[in-house]
Design a protein around this nucleic acid. Structure first.
Lengths: 348, 348
DNA sequence: GAAAGTCACGAAAACGTTTGCGTGTTAAAA
DNA sequence: TTTTAACACGCAAACGTTTTCGTGACTTTC
C-alpha cells in the first residue's frame, strides 16, 4: 500500500526543488526541456495527481457544490439531483448531498457542516418545517458569508437569491382548463395546506381556470390535506378523506391533485366506488413521478421537468460562483420552468 | 459580505498569537482562564468555525465518503443513499455522490476525481459496462493507495474488498417456492443476461427451487432480456417479448421476474391476454420499488432492504477508515442482507 | 573585458489549522 | 538569596499546493 505521491517526494527523488517540479508539470518555460521531460516521465510513472484538498485550501475554492433536499427517495428530487450532477460534472464540479428529512434543525446543521469551507455554494429546496416556521436566518447568514445559494421548487419570496421554480400557477390552470374542455363541470381539488408554496400556487391556478370559465368555485370541492403526515404509510387516512369527498358530492366528474399520491388515491377510491376513470371521472396529477406512467389507467400529469430544473439551478450557481468579483449590487434572477401536460388514460 | 473569520484574524484583533487562540478554543490548560474567556467570547460573537478544508489537509482526513452509483433516479439506489447518508451523518461524515450512468469511463473518471484527497473511502455499485468489460484496475489502484472500498449489490468475487449484498439466491428461491406452494406448475422466469451478477444468482435460486420440488426446468420458460436497452423507454419491446412467451406457453401459471419493470410488464401483458392475476397467473418481482405497492393488482415482491444495505455499507466503510493502523493482513467481510417476501395481491 | 541580458532553478510565502517545544516571568522551595 | 517549578504564552513546522521574486551561471553586446 503506497500512499499517493506528492510534489515533495518527486522533488526529493529527482533532486530538484518542489517549485521546479510544480512548474515542470505545467510546462512552464522557466524550466529546461530536459527537466520537464524528466519530471513528467516520473510523474506519469507514479501516476501523480495533485491533491484536491491542498488546491482547495490554496485557491479558497473547492469546486464542489452542496445540495440540500428534504428527501432523496422521491422521483422529483432524485431527478433534480441528476440534473445538477450532470452540469456540475461537465463544468468540473463535484456534488455533495445533505438530506434535511423535512426537518428545520437538520437543514441548519447540514448547511453549517458544509458551509465551513467544504463547498462553494448551495442548491437547495426548503424543508416543510422551515416553510412552516418561516425562520430563514441560516440562509441569510450563509449568503452574508459570501456563499451563493440557488433555491428550487420550494421557495419563498422573502429570501433574496437566485431561484428556479416551476410555473405552478399556469401548470395547474392549464390542467384544470383541460378538464373543463373535456366537459367536466364539477372539478374537485386535492391539495396541501397553504404554507407549502407550491400547493398554494397550484390552488390559485385551479381557481383561476374555474373563474375564466365562469364556474363558481365551491369550497366543499377543495380538499386540503395536512401533509405533515406521511401518507405513503398512512394511505388509508388519505383514501378515507377522498372517499368522503366523493360520497358527499356525487356529481364530481373531474379531479385535479397537486401530487402523484393524491391523484392515484383518487383513482383508487373512484374505482372502489364503482366509478370509471376516465368515463365517469377524469383525473390529472401534478407530478414527475413514475407511478403515473405505470398505473392503470395511466395518469395524465403536469410534468415539471425536474432534471431540467436541476440543470438550470447548477448553471445558475456555477455562473455566480465563477463571477465572484463582487461588483456593484447583486442581481438575482428567477428562472421559471414551463410545465407540460402529459396526456394519458385518466383523461378523455 | 464578510468572509468567514479565521484564527489569524481573531489573533490579530485580540493581540495574541494564533496558537494561543487555537488552544484557548480547545480549553487547553496551557492558557489562562482570562484569555480563554476573552477568546471564546470573541469567537462566539463572530461565529467562528474552523475551516474544514484546512483541517482535512492537516489531518489527512476529510470526513467525507464518496458514493458511486450507476443511476440515481431509481428507488433502489436512492434508498441505499438514504441509508448511507443516515449513518454517515450520525458518525460525522459527509457524502459526496458520483453517477456513472452505467458507463465504465464515467465510473473511472468519477473515481479519479474523488480519489485525489477529496474523500476517505468509497461505497459503490458497479456499472453494467464495468461488469461486462470485467476491467477492475481502477478499483485495485484505488485500494492500493490506501483508500478503502465497500461494494454493494452488484459485486464480483475477483475484487478483494468489503461487500454488502442481498441474498439473491435464497430470495429468488423462496419466491419461487411460494409460487410452487401456491399450486403453480409452470413458472416462467424473466431475467437479465448472465453477466449481471444479481440476475445470475436469482436465476440459480429459481432453478434450485424447481429442482427441490422435482420440477424439471424448461429452458423455454426462461426469458433472458438484453438489458443494455433501457426498457423504461422501450416498454413495447419488453412487452412484446413477454407476450410471445405467454402465447407460446399457455400453461404458464406463475411468473418470477428479477425486477419491478419485468414483473409489471408481465402483469400488464397477462391482463391484455385476458388472464386474471392472481387467479390464472401469479406474479412475484424482485424489487424494492414503489410501483409494486401502487399497481393493480399490487405486486408481491422480494424486498431487498435497500436502506439497510446503505447503512451497513456505511458502517463497514467508516469502521475501516477509522481503524486505519495498517495492521497485519487485511480482513475483508461480506455482509449478506436477507430478503423478505412481501405478499400482496398478485399472489394467492 | 565590463555591462547587460538570458536561462534555469530555488527560497519562501500563502491558504487555515494543530501541536510539540522553547522561553520569559513570577511564585515557591531550599 | 539562589534554585526550581509552575505558568502562560509564542515560535515554527507540518499538511500539499502555486506563484512571485531572487540569484548564480552563462552568453551576448559594445
Amino acid at each position: 500500500m503506497k500512499r499517493k505521491i506528492t510534489l515533495k517526494q518527486i522533488a526529493r527523488e529527482l533532486d530538484v526543488s518542489i517549485s521546479t517540479v510544480s512548474k515542470a508539470l505545467k510546462n512552464s518555460k522557466e524550466i529546461s526541456a530536459d527537466t520537464i521531460q524528466k519530471v513528467q516521465a516520473f510523474a506519469k510513472l507514479y501516476n501523480y495527481r495533485p491533491n484536491n484538498i491542498a488546491l482547495s485550501l490554496k485557491n479558497r475554492k473547492t469546486n464542489t457544490i452542496g445540495i440540500i433536499i428534504p428527501e432523496i427517495v422521491h422521483h422529483f428530487f432524485s431527478k433534480v439531483i441528476r440534473g445538477v450532477e450532470l452540469v456540475a460534472n461537465k463544468r468540473g464540479y463535484n456534488v455533495i448531498i445533505g438530506l434535511s428529512n423535512e426537518s428545520f434543525s437538520k437543514e441548519v446543521i447540514n448547511m453549517e457542516m458544509l458551509a465551513n469551507g467544504s463547498i462553494d455554494g448551495f442548491i437547495l429546496s426548503m424543508s416543510k418545517e422551515t416553510l412552516l416556521q418561516q425562520d430563514y436566518h441560516h440562509y441569510n447568514e450563509t449568503m452574508n458569508q459570501g456563499m451563493p445559494i440557488v433555491m428550487f421548487d420550494r421557495v419563498v419570496s422573502d429570501i433574496k437569491c437566485d431561484k428556479v421554480i416551476v410555473d405552478d400557477f399556469n401548470g395547474a390552470k392549464n390542467a384544470v382548463q383541460k378538464l373543463i374542455s373535456n366537459q367536466c363541470n364539477h372539478i374537485a381539488l386535492i391539495t396541501t395546506k397553504d404554507y407549502v408554496s407550491v400547493g398554494r400556487l397550484r390552488t390559485q391556478g385551479y381557481l383561476e381556470a374555474l373563474e375564466e370559465n365562469k364556474i363558481t368555485p365551491q369550497a366543499e370541492l377543495i380538499l386540503k390535506m395536512d401533509d405533515t403526515l406521511d401518507y405513503e404509510v398512512h394511505l388509508e387516512a388519505l383514501e378515507a378523506e377522498i372517499e368522503q369527498l366523493f360520497k358527499a358530492h356525487k356529481n364530481i366528474d373531474g379531479v385535479f391533485a397537486v401530487n402523484e399520491l393524491y391523484a392515484l388515491s383518487a383513482m383508487k377510491v373512484a374505482r372502489r366506488l364503482g366509478l370509471n376513470v376516465p368515463d365517469d371521472i377524469q383525473v390529472i396529477g401534478f407530478t414527475d413521478g413514475v407511478l403515473s406512467k405505470h398505473s392503470t389507467p395511466s395518469l395524465t400529469t403536469v410534468s415539471q421537468h425536474a432534471q431540467l430544473m436541476g440543470e438550470r439551478a447548477a448553471d445558475l450557481l456555477i455562473d455566480k460562483i465563477e463571477t465572484d468579483f463582487d461588483t456593484e449590487e447583486e442581481q438575482f434572477q428567477t428562472v421559471v420552468i414551463n410545465t407540460e401536460l402529459v396526456e394519458r388514460e385518466s383523461t378523455k
